[in-house]
Design a protein around this nucleic acid. Structure first.
Length: 692
DNA sequence: AATCGCTCGCTTTTT
DNA sequence: GCGAGCGATT
């Protein structure tokens, strides 16, 4: 490539970024040496990684042999978009690069699913396996739990979700069950033997039903990497492997990488230990810390410490917060930006006033020209925004919420997916169990009996239509069986087979739900989403692994053209930025969550969470502290409350970085009789009712 | 055998 | 304020 073109696309990078993109170029042997990029918040990480990928392609790497692993589907799409844009620029001189695409980019889970299907034949897996989401997995766990008689113990056995969490934690951290229990679930330690039996049964059930859960996608992949012949094959498939958000990967994922590239050649990982916030999912910051020494010679390390995002005062405050972390490996970030307002620490009376303050501040900024889309409200737990959502609805301010309840968790959406999965894989008991009970007159008993019959049938011969049933059910059943059989046919046209299922389901909805009208819109939406995928398989996989992640995301298509406010959990805000950020409930008990104050590591992670929230802001940052807190689940709609205190992560010593103020109670003429508690409670209940 | 209605316990973050 | 689970009812 000529140096002029090189200059044109590398021009915008600072020296450290340029080093990360093409540092090893001079010596051919250096170029593919393993590379660790420590990239602080707002340091141009995505841009740098995208440039590195584009640079590799410009230097002759085959885009079809580049594996790009990101944390979320959203991040993958963004990365691919940027790479394509940079490559398109280079392609003006190098025609053969025009139209470059990156077929191998996605999450570990998504790529794992794809590889497992590709290699299914060589690892004894049915390529038609279905993937269970967390709830399906919990249901299957529950089935095993009942069959082993664990649900009727003298002492209460852990709930299905807890069992699954324990299983998942053990798998992802690669720890023994005993260690997992002692370390993360001490209150369940007495059940170790029962849990071991339960997990064995759970694994057998999954295999008999040709079903994989999230963890299996990594687990099977990593085991594949332990087979030398397979590992060599998969490894050779990729000339370069690049991983984003490496601080949030777990041991299983690290093992996969090492299996793919044992000598580290062609391997690049990017991350920031100060933003590690997923240890509850088994992520370990050790991955990033130990990365350089895992290779001989050790990996090259490049640090990006210049922040391009936040104003000086915001960055100073964030640095002050993270400085108190007991263990840290990255340096403070610095910025060339000068001026800007200090972040505000705002005291309000309670939850209700917090909502009022935030809405007023947001509208004021919009008056000054900052569109709603450039503003976000962040919080620790999805339900923290409930009061705010009511206020936004009342004032007709559109918003989109990320995190929390998903489109897919709605009962009616799950029903349709269960129908589809059952059609694809009649041995999938969880899906079949749910799907069959949609028919009036079929309950757990009949459904279970039919599933038993299906399990014993030879593969390929599903016999759905020929089940013994009460005569009264037969006509309805015939239609149901015919529907599933045609939808399950691998040659069934897509997406019309989905449409047919939904058509059938729509008529059942009337009986199943009082509010079928509202839910119908979601079903229409599902059909529309389905139409954007090329096949049933791709649709089901994508929906399980990369669900549309905002409530009312895509749902309100007209909404997308309009301006709307972003509401997001801090976790879901990772990697994003906004002109103005408001953080709710900066009090002890919320940040840190009182469920996460068990160990020093947990508390440190909560501190990093606050740091991540603060560093999302460019120009304005409001941290809100309600003085009074309603006790969350009290009987009888009482008005009990506790006095909350400012989060321990903003102690007096850091206050100098904030402008402190309190928000007075506004004149109470807005909403009828002021201070009438009964009235306020009624209104809230009404608003909540809108979402049911 | 399915379904309705009641009580009890738990309640973060997500691929 | 919600789901899972259980006992009573159809």
């Amino acid at each position: 490539m000529n140096s002029e073109a090189a200059a044109s696309y590398l021009d915008g990078l600072n020296p450290a970024q340029r080093d990360a993109v093409c540092g090893g170029d001079a010596a051919a042997d250096e170029r593919d040496r393993p590379l660790l990029v420590i990239a602080g918040a707002g340091s141009g990480k995505t841009n740098t990684l995208a440039h590195r990928v584009a640079h590799l392609i410009a230097q002759g790497a085959d885009p079809g042999r580049i594996l790009l692993l990101t944390f979320s589907r959203r991040a993958a799409d963004e990365m691919v978009r940027r790479v394509e844009r940079i490559v398109a620029r280079v392609a003006r001189q190098h025609r053969h690069l025009a139209g470059t695409t990156l077929p191998w980019s996605g999450t570990f889970h998504g790529v794992g699913a794809r590889l497992l299907r590709d290699y299914a034949a060589s690892i004894g897996l049915d390529p038609g396996f279905t993937i269970h989401d967390r709830e399906d997995s919990a249901d299957l766990m529950n089935l095993a739990r009942h069959e082993l008689g664990l649900s009727s113990q003298r002492k209460r056995f852990p709930l299905k979700a807890t069992c699954l969490a324990i299983y998942s934690s053990a798998v992802n951290t690669q720890a023994s069950l005993g260690d997992t229990l002692r370390h993360a679930f001490p209150w369940c330690a007495e059940w170790e033997e029962e849990l071991r039996r339960l997990f064995a049964a759970y694994v057998e059930a999954k295999q008999a039903q040709r079903v994989l859960d999230y963890d299996d996608l990594l687990l099977y992949w990593s085991h594949m990497m332990h087979e030398p012949a397979l590992a060599a094959g998969v490894g050779a498939q990729f000339s370069h492997v690049l991983v984003d958000e490496y601080q949030d990967t777990n041991r299983l994922q690290a093992a996969i990488l090492l299996g793919l590239k044992p000598d580290g050649r062609g391997l690049t990982v990017v991350g920031d230990d100060a933003q590690s916030i997923y240890s509850f999912r088994g992520a370990t910051v050790r991955n990033i810390l130990d990365f350089p020494q895992a290779f001989e010679p050790p990996a090259r390390v490049v640090t990006l410490a210049q922040n391009y995002r936040s104003s000086g005062p915001i960055l100073a405050a964030a640095n002050a917060v993270i400085a108190a972390a007991s263990e840290r490996f990255t340096k403070d970030l610095w910025t060339a930006r000068s001026g800007g307002a200090m972040p505000r620490l705002v005291s309000v009376r309670d939850d209700a006033e917090q909502a009022l303050f935030v809405v007023d501040a947001i509208l004021a900024r919009r008056e000054q020209g900052l569109r709603l889309k450039r503003q976000a409200v962040l919080f620790r737990a999805a339900h923290h925004s409930a009061r705010l959502e009511v206020e936004l609805t009342r004032r007709n301010i559109p918003f989109v919420k990320f995190g929390g309840l998903k489109f897919l968790e709605a009962a009616h959406v799950k029903d349709v997916l269960a129908l589809m999965r059952f059609a694809q894989n009649p041995r999938d008991r969880v899906s079949g169990f749910r799907a069959m009970q949609l028919l009036a007159g079929i309950g757990p008993k009949i459904a279970a009996r039919i599933l038993d019959n299906l399990r014993d049938a030879p593969p390929g011969c599903e016999l759905l239509a020929e089940q013994p049933l009460p005569e009264a059910l037969r006509p309805a059943w015939q239609g149901f069986a015919a529907l599933l059989e045609s939808a399950g046919d691998p040659r069934a046209p897509w997406p019309s087979s989905l449409d047919a299922l939904c058509q059938w389901y729509r008529t059942e909805m009337e009986r199943l739900f009082e509010d079928a009208e509202i839910r119908r819109a979601d079903i229409d939406q599902l059909v529309r989403i389905g139409a954007t995928y090329p096949s049933r398989e791709r649709f089901l996989t994508a929906l399980t692994l990369d669900p549309p992640d905002a409530t009312s995301d895509e749902a309100g298509v007209p909404l997308l053209d309009e301006d709307y406010l972003i509401l997001s959990t801090i976790h879901s805000a990772k990697g994003q930025e906004w002109g103005a950020v408001s953080l709710l409930n900066a009090v002890d008990g919320c940040i840190p969550s009182d469920l996460a104050t068990g160990s020093a590591e947990q508390i440190d992670e909560e501190r990093r969470l606050l740091y991540v929230a603060m560093t999302r802001a460019r120009d304005h940052l409001d941290i809100v502290i309600p003085q009074r807190f309603h006790v969350s689940h009290q009987a009888g709609g009482g008005d009990r409350h506790v006095y909350a205190s400012r989060t321990r992560f903003i102690p007096n010593a850091v206050l100098e970085h904030f402008e402190q103020r309190s928000w007075p109670k506004p004149p109470p003429q807005l909403e009828g009789t002021p201070g009438s508690k009964a009235r306020a409670v009624d209104l809230a209940a009404k608003m909540r009712g809108m979402w049911r």
